[in-house]
Simulated assay, not measured.
Amino acid sequence: MKSALITGANKGIGLETAKQLSKQGLFVYLGSRDIKKGEVIVQELKDNGFLNVKAIEIDVTKPDTIASAKIIIQKEQGHLDVLINNAGISGVLPQNALETTPDHYKEVFEVNLYSVINVTQTFIPLLKKSPEPRIVNVSTSVGSLSLQSNSNWPAYDYAKYAVYASSKSAMNMYTIHLA
């Protein structure tokens, strides 16, 4: 059975992705900062017929939880087929490029870029054991340099996302180089 790890999977896009992959027959590790919240979600999923899911504690800003998650998956699966870096934060809004502090940039980049790099590098040995490994880094159109530069784009005036957009643009570039 193929396996997948999804960070930030106890709600939103991560949770829906977990459901869809489970339906397709993958064993899904539902990554959650708070293991209790993850376990509640997994129980709800199991009550609704999703049997191949397991909550796993992973706070993408804490290297010890990343390493622990890798050890668990290595023991249980021996490999990882799909890594989905979904965890992310927008940060405090609004975010003006001239007024937002460097500390706020650091906070958002820690989750949206540096953790993606750390999680990816940690799990590469398990991904290399898969015959068809996949890494998916969840992004947004707000992180597109082309769209952000187009005055006709509906979100062109979304200056309130300066930090979030910058972090996602940087993650997109990391993804290109990773590929």
Results as ranks from 00 to 15, higher is better:
Tyr156Pro: 02
Val116Asn: 04
Ala87Gly: 01
Ile135Thr: 08
Pro125Gln: 10
Lys129Ile: 02
Leu126Thr: 08
Asn48Gly: 11
Gly38Leu: 05
Glu107Trp: 08
Arg33Gln: 11
Leu21Ser: 01
Gln24Asp: 14
Phe123Val: 04
Pro131Gly: 00
His104Leu: 11
Tyr114Asn: 10
Ile84Gly: 05
Pro125His: 06
Gln43Pro: 03
Glu132Thr: 14
Arg33Gly: 05
Ile72Leu: 15
Leu147Asn: 10
Ile66Phe: 04
Thr100Val: 12
Ser144His: 07
Glu132Leu: 12
Ile84Cys: 09
Tyr29Leu: 00
Thr140Gln: 05
Ser130Tyr: 06
Ala67Glu: 15
Gln95Glu: 08
Ser151Asp: 11
Ser22Phe: 06
Lys54Trp: 01
Val138Gln: 00
Ser149Gly: 08
Leu126Arg: 02
Tyr29His: 01
Val40Thr: 15
Ile117Ser: 03
Asp64Val: 09
Pro63Lys: 14
Ile66Val: 12
Lys37Trp: 03
Asp103Ser: 14
Lys54Gln: 15
Gly78Met: 06
Ser151Asn: 11
Ile117His: 07
Lys37Pro: 00
Gly88Glu: 12
Asn152Asp: 15
Lys75Thr: 13
Ala87Thr: 02
Leu93Thr: 12
Val28Leu: 07
Glu132Asp: 14
Ala155Trp: 11
Leu21Trp: 00
Leu80Asp: 04
Gln77Glu: 13
Asn85Val: 05
Gln24Pro: 01
Lys129Ser: 13
Ala67Arg: 11
Asn48Glu: 12
Gly143Cys: 04
Val60Asn: 01
Val111Phe: 06
Lys36Gly: 07
Gln95Ser: 07
Gly91His: 01
Ile56Leu: 12
Tyr156Phe: 12
Asn48Ser: 13
Tyr29Cys: 01
Ser144Arg: 05
Ala69Cys: 10
Tyr114Val: 06
Ile124Tyr: 09
Ile135Trp: 05
Ser68Pro: 00
Gly88Arg: 11
Gln43Leu: 13
Ile71Asp: 15
Arg33Asn: 10
Arg134Glu: 10
Asp34Met: 02
Ala55Gly: 04
Ser144Met: 06
Ile89His: 07
Leu80Cys: 04
Leu83Trp: 09
Arg33Leu: 11
Leu83Ala: 05
Ile41Trp: 03
Gln24Arg: 12
Lys46Val: 07
Tyr114Ala: 03
Asn86Tyr: 04
Thr65Gly: 09
Asp103Val: 07
Thr65Arg: 09
Ala67Gln: 13
Leu93Met: 15
Val40Met: 14
Gln77Phe: 02
Tyr105Ala: 01
Gln95Ala: 06
Gly88Thr: 10
Ile66Ala: 03
Trp153Gly: 01
Val60Leu: 01
Glu132Ala: 14
Ser90Asp: 11
Val142Cys: 04
Ile41Phe: 05
Lys62Phe: 13
Val42Gly: 08
Lys36Asn: 14
Val138Asp: 01
Gln74His: 14
Gln24Lys: 14
Glu99Lys: 12
Thr122Tyr: 08
Arg33Tyr: 09
Leu113Phe: 13
Gln121Pro: 08
Asn96Phe: 09
Gln148Gly: 11
Pro63Leu: 13
Thr120Gly: 00
Pro131Arg: 00
Gly38Val: 00
Leu45Met: 12
Thr120His: 00
Lys37His: 09
Ile117Gln: 07
Asn112Met: 11
Val28Met: 07
Val142Tyr: 11
Trp153Glu: 05
Glu76Phe: 04
Thr120Leu: 00
Glu39Pro: 03
Ser149Trp: 01
Leu51Ile: 07
Leu83Asp: 09
Asn137Pro: 06
Leu30Thr: 10
Pro133Trp: 02
Lys36Pro: 00
Pro94Trp: 02
Ile124Leu: 15
